[in-house]
């Protein structure tokens, strides 16, 4: 093995062996307090999110009810107009009287 290659291999081994010298890190004594705080905040956050979701759902429902009422009203008035139109044409051509005659 030539010199540069040997140097590279020894550098690699030295670098890999630095892991043996890494010391373990001890935890933060206040970690539990921080976790409690984070959990409290996430609970508050999730309950306000839930409230917002309910409000949104209610608003959407209200909107749907409104839209369907308008549609139903419009449909009824169109039907009434159509019926009135047919009746007018029928009476104009005397169809209504003829209908009465046919009953005999």
């Amino acid at each position: 093995m030539d010199k540069p290659r040997q140097d590279i291999e020894s550098e690699i081994e030295r670098t890999l062996s630095t892991l043996d010298e890494v010391e373990r890190v001890s935890g933060n004594p206040f970690l539990y307090t921080r976790i409690q705080e984070q959990m409290r905040q996430s609970k508050t956050g999730s309950s306000s999110k839930r409230a917002a979701a309910w409000s949104l759902a209610f608003a959407v429902l209200l909107l749907l009810v409104n839209i369907s009422s308008v549609l139903m009203y419009y449909q009824k008035s169109v039907q009434a107009d159509q019926a009135a139109g047919i009746e007018a044409i029928a009476s104009e051509y005397g169809l209504l009287d003829q209908e009465e005659d046919w009953e005999y």
Binding site: T15, T18, L19, V22, E23, V25
Partner: peptide, 16 residues
């Protein structure tokens, strides 16, 4: 910023 790494090894450990 690994607190378990000694200053003299920092560069090499960072590389690893």
């Amino acid at each position: 910023d690994h607190p378990g790494v000694a200053l003299e090894n920092k560069e090499r450990t960072q590389l690893l």
